[in-house]
Amino acid sequence: MHELGIAQSIVEIAEKNARQQGAKRVLTVTVEVGVLAGVLPEALEFCFDACCRETLLEGSRLRIQQIPARARCRDCHQEYELKSFFDNCPACDSTVGDQLSGEELRIKEMEID
């Protein structure tokens, strides 16, 4: 349940930025979460709602954009989607690939009023 800590960071960062903008409240927050980042979207939403209470984010909505995990094979240079950290290259079955994406954990933007 480290989603709680992540949710707290989202609220903290969004609130700081909202104050700088002189916002009355935050309507939505968009975050990017890689599918291999080890974060459960449902748990994150649940914690987010709890963390928003009594902040400028009260009643706001969390948009989670899931980022697929991709890798490039070191042997045949094919790019492929990773379902897990240890997938082999589908083209040549090589076990060595460089991961390109999938572990993002980033607050991207927000809508304020």
Binding site: S9, L27, E111
Partner: peptide
């Protein structure tokens, strides 16, 4: 939504 969009681009584990 009628709000204004603000880009943030900050890593959540940055702190």
């Amino acid at each position: 939504q009628l709000g204004k969009t603000v880009r943030i681009e900050e890593d959540l584990l940055a702190k």
